[in-house]
């Protein structure tokens, strides 16, 4: 946290949650919990955002929307899945229209527990996401290449090591 150089901006998308986690995410941004003290600002534009907060599970209709938002975000980026529904569907797991957690569609870095997730734990998730973002940023700068390329190289070298 101490070496934080830039202010990460978050984007929030409601997957198929019950609103409980969503209003808690919004409560984090408002005076009592105030994540803005970490430089975190809520933005509506995926191209401005560094951290993607997703609440709720994935269903047939919003699958593409989540994918699109993720693809539009610039590298490096971190995905935080808020609440039990974003992990595996939670209480709605048995519903016919729930495909599962967010990780069915996009890679998730951090899971926040709870139903509904408490603001304190959401803030904890965001702070961890900020650290992770910083790590990814360092990697990005050190190598002087795009993050995607870097990950690709890393995967290839891993494969070579395995073989």
């Amino acid at each position: 946290m101490a070496k934080l150089k830039k202010s990460p901006w978050i984007i929030h998308y409601d997957g198929s949650s019950c609103n409980g986690c969503d209003i808690e995410v919004l409560a984090c941004l408002t005076p009592l919990y105030d994540v803005e003290r970490f430089g975190v600002i809520n933005t509506g534009n995926p191209k401005h955002a560094d951290i993607l907060l997703i609440t709720g599970g994935i269903n047939a209709q919003n699958k593409k929307v989540v994918e699109q938002i993720y693809q539009q975000m610039p590298e490096p980026k971190v995905v935080v899945a808020v609440g039990i529904c974003a992990y595996n569907g939670g209480i709605f797991k048995e519903c016919y229209n729930i495909l599962g957690g967010v990780d069915k569609v996009i890679p998730v870095d951090i899971y926040v527990p709870g139903c509904a997730a408490r603001p304190e734990s959401i803030i904890d998730g965001v702070v961890q996401a900020v650290d992770l973002l910083e790590m990814k940023q360092d990697y990005f700068e050190k190598n002087g290449i795009s993050y995607n390329k870097a990950m690709k190289n890393k995967n290839e070298s891993n494969k070579e090591n395995e073989s």
Binding site: D14, G15, S16, G56, I91, N97
Partner: peptide
């Protein structure tokens, strides 16, 4: 956000379904 919440009333005990009904909307 369609989850198909009304349908799982057939799979859950009516006493347990209270907790699902609460999550219609947070």
């Amino acid at each position: 956000i369609h989850r198909g919440l009304e349908h799982i009333v057939k799979k859950k005990d009516f006493n347990d379904y209270v907790y699902v009904a609460e999550r219609v909307c947070g």
